[in-house]
Design a protein around this nucleic acid. Structure first.
Length: 426
RNA sequence: GCGGGCGUAGCGUAGCGGUUAACGCGUCUGGUUGUGGCCCAGAAGAUCGUGGGUUCAAAUCCCACCGUUCGCCCCA
């Protein structure tokens, strides 16, 4: 290895060859958010650690073992954002957005930091596109954010995706359900996997999410929350499904769907590639969180949102074979050699760039052959040749790099204009 | 945090106890006083992830660490 330094574990460089994917994602985000009437917000990379402890839930893994927490020089307890929703909620409350026309639709793309064990598609720093809608309990809004997310994926050429959806009901009926679930599992406690025995005490809902074969028989026979919703919860759930179906979005109810954050109620959903066996397959997910803003000290405000990982989207695009043509870095490549040629080359390049023509100047210390190779590699359509004999005659040669490579003699003052004209005319 | 696989030039690979570590792509230079893409020739580029150990001898065997990858936990 040439370099002694490496990017920190779980972080990565996004090299130029990958940038077209990222640009496409950002462009699609700009499109769909505009189509759905979302406004952009940007929040800081770090926040008060307490925001996430309160917001995400202090027993969630994100807060308990994955948060980059630090004390700054003034003694404040801060954390690199592990999760976007609490940050946006904080901004909503801090800026009195309750007095904006409701509902308030916000989106952002920002960096997330989680100290967990890296794998493909799981990084310590990753980028998330988040959308949040505040101030509406309407199930159509649930369907709308899912529909926005779905459209994003469609526009990026991602096929073979599936929306999995469920409802976690509201806190009171869920509490009652969880008691029933524990009562159901308790007699088998000894026969469950170690993980599931722990879940029984800590987070019974997770029992349904077990991937351990020993738990499967009990899991299948277990009471499912989606089948036992309260009347209000059931009506909401049905309305969301109905709206999705009206919009032609293929959503399947997944009774085993569990999301890792404490604050969700009613609608929860994930988007997964149906043919991906990997555990990190989920590319996006979210849900309703009608009680979070209250938890954070605000007036009760219903809300729903999602996050989707851009790294995972890009991986999925590549897996799906979405590709981009290599962009040329210049339209015009100026080859020059000899005393004073650099000055002229630089002047012509500047003229071209002022006129919005991408132009590159060759390395005048290298041979013509080498500069032409660079010109070819740049993908430029035209080469401008400025050698000693041309400069003596006050002309430049304009060469078409496609086709037969014919060259025209053009007076130096007209080179930029001529090339620009031909470059536009192509 | 737990368990498994992998780690050889920029990239992809070969070599798997024994003289100067090989090949393809890429890069650079040349083949045309000063002209690209194809072709040809040559060059540069590797402390064989790092550090220990075993051995007369280690890229090859063993251990630890680092990185990556797969599964679990969890999540985007």
């Amino acid at each position: 290895m040439a370099s002694r330094f490496q990017a920190p574990r779980g972080t990565q460089d996004i090299l130029p060859e990958l940038q077209p994917y990222w640009s496409a994602v950002h462009a699609a985000i700009a499109d769909v958010t505009r189509l759905y009437g979302f406004q952009r917000i940007d929040t800081p990379v770090f926040e008060s650690a307490a925001l996430f402890e309160k917001g995400s839930g202090d027993t969630t893994d994100i807060v308990e073992k994955e948060m980059y927490r630090f004390e700054d020089r003034g003694g404040d307890q801060l954390a690199l954002t592990p999760e976007g929703t609490p940050a946006i909620c904080r901004a909503y409350l801090e800026h009195g957005m309750a007095s904006w026309p409701q509902p308030v639709r916000l989106f952002t793309t920002h960096q997330m930091f989680r100290y967990d064990r890296p794998q493909k598609g799981r990084y310590r720093q990753h980028t998330q596109f988040d959308c949040e809608v505040f101030g509406s309990t309407d199930p159509l809004v649930d369907a709308e954010v899912i529909s926005l997310l779905w459209m994003l994926y469609q526009r990026l050429g991602l096929t073979g995706l599936q929306v999995r959806i469920a409802s976690l009901d509201d806190p009171e009926p869920r509490k009652a359900y969880l008691e029933r679930l524990r009562a159901y599992y308790e007699p088998f406690r000894d026969r469950l996997s170690e993980d599931s025995q722990r879940r029984l005490d800590r987070n019974a809902l997770r029992l349904l999410d077990s991937k351990d074969e020993r738990d499967f028989p009990y899991k299948e026979a277990a009471p499912k929350l989606v089948n036992e919703l309260s009347p209000a919860g059931a009506a909401h759930h049905e309305a969301v499904l109905d709206a999705l179906s009206a919009a032609g979005i293929p959503a399947v109810v997944d009774p085993y769907l569990v999301r890792g954050l404490d604050y969700y109620n009613r609608t929860v959903f994930e988007v997964v590639p149906v043919d991906d066996e990997r555990a990190q397959g989920t590319i996006g997910g979210g849900g309703r969180y009608d009680f979070l803003l209250e938890t954070l000290g605000g007036t009760p405000t219903p809300a729903i949102g999602f996050g989707t990982g851009i790294e995972r989207i890009v991986l999925e695009m590549q897996r799906r074979g979405v590709s981009f043509e290599r962009e040329s870095v210049a339209d015009v490549f100026i080859v020059h050699r000899g005393e004073g040629s650099g000055r002229v080359a630089f002047r012509i390049a500047s003229e071209l760039r002022r006129e919005n023509v991408p132009a590159q100047v060759g390395d005048g210390t290298r041979s013509f052959k080498a500069q032409f190779r660079s010109a070819d590699a740049s993908g430029a359509r035209f080469a401008v040749i400025l050698g000693e004999s041309e400069l003596e005659r006050g002309i430049g040669l304009v060469k078409d790099l496609r086709g037969g490579g014919e060259q025209q003699e053009i007076p130096l003052e007209l080179v930029a204009e001529t090339v620009r004209g031909q470059s536009l005319a192509r």
